[in-house]
């Protein structure tokens, strides 16, 4: 029963990571990629958009890891 619970918890984590990935690409579609595709703004705006894009990816990874750590702590308690 516990193994089933653990497996389902990880399935939930994978689903959250997947939804997160979809959201991240959606945000990137409106930030990082227009900056690369149409470099019509100033250099500063373009750079800012790239930083935003990279920060979003980093945030996604950090969020995923933190959530997993919290879940594991719960599973072990």
């Amino acid at each position: 029963m516990s193994l089933l619970r653990n497996t389902l918890t990880i399935i939930m984590l994978l689903t959250i990571a997947w939804i997160g990935f979809i959201i991240v690409t959606y945000i990137l579609a409106h930030t990082l990629f227009p900056a690369i595709e149409y470099a019509d703004g100033t250099l500063l705006i373009g750079l800012l958009r790239v930083i935003v894009g990279v920060a979003i990816i980093a945030l996604w990874i950090y969020g995923w890891y933190t959530l997993t750590k919290i879940m594991l702590r719960k599973m072990l308690s």
């Binding site: 516990s2 193994l3 653990n6 497996t7 918890t9 990880i10 997993t68 750590k69 879940m71 594991l72 599973m75 072990l76």
Partner: peptide
């Protein structure tokens, strides 16, 4: 923290 460790938590 590994996948195997998570799967085998408390079991």
């Amino acid at each position: 923290l590994t996948l195997v460790r998570m799967l085998s938590a408390k079991v």
